[in-house]
Structure formats: C-alpha cells, structure tokens
Simulated assay, not measured.
Amino acid sequence: MKSDTKDAALKRLARIEGQVRGVSKMIDQDRYCIDVVRQIQAIKAALSGLEKVVLDDHLETCVEDALTSNDVDARREKVEELVAVLGGRKK
C-alpha cells in the first residue's frame, strides 16, 4: 500500500472508530432509534469510502504490477481476487 493511501486509510479508520463508539453511547443512552440508524448508515458510507480508497490503491499497485509482469499465474490470481471481491464470491 502506498504511504499516502495508508495515511488516508488510517485517518478514515480513526473517524469510523469514533462513529462506532458514538453509536454505542447512543444505544447505551436509549437514544431515538432513527437517530441511531442514521449514524449506522453514516458508518456504512464511511466504510464504503474506505473500501474504495483501499481498492483503488490495490488496482494501482498490486494489480498493475501483476498485469505488466510476465507471470501469467500472478495476473490470473489478481483477476480472480478482484472477481471474487467485487462479485461477492469467496476465493
């Protein structure tokens, strides 16, 4: 993972961690259910954003390296990984 991507991912994770702690506190305080659900939706959106950042980095580094190499097995492996992750199939 590139260092700038790693830094961005760690910052996002810290924010997500804070959001999760906040939801825990909301539940403990018996806050209104819809408010809790909205915060959960915000966490899901933040996780999706993090997933995109990590996946973009993977495409720009690991996948690009494999596709430009002469190693047919490495290329096949990276494509199979992407199909499994994007298609929801287990590798």
Rank of each mutant, 00 (worst) to 15 (best):
I16T: 07
L13H: 08
I40A: 03
R75I: 01
S24K: 13
V79D: 00
A46R: 02
L55P: 06
G18F: 06
V37R: 04
A9C: 04
R76K: 06
L59D: 08
I43H: 01
E60M: 11
V72I: 04
A74G: 00
I43W: 01
D71I: 00
R75E: 01
Q39H: 13
C62R: 03
V53T: 15
L10T: 13
K90G: 15
G22V: 10
D56L: 04
Q29L: 10
G87M: 08
V23F: 02
S3V: 12
Y32W: 12
V20W: 01
L55Y: 11
V63H: 01
V20E: 07
L50G: 10
D71V: 00
V83A: 03
K90W: 08
E51Y: 11
L50T: 14
I16S: 06
L10C: 09
R76T: 03
L82N: 02
V36A: 06
H58N: 08
L13V: 09
A74Y: 00
V36M: 03
L10Q: 11
C33M: 05
D4H: 15
L86V: 14
V83F: 04
N70Q: 07
D56W: 07
V63K: 00
K11E: 14
Q29H: 12
M1S: 06
K78S: 01
K52V: 09
Q39L: 04
C62S: 11
Q39R: 07
D57E: 15
D30F: 09
C62I: 06
L82G: 02
L10R: 04
E17A: 07
L13F: 02
K25L: 13
L50V: 14
L55T: 15
D7K: 13
V85A: 08
A74W: 00
E51T: 13
R38T: 12
A74K: 00
G88W: 04
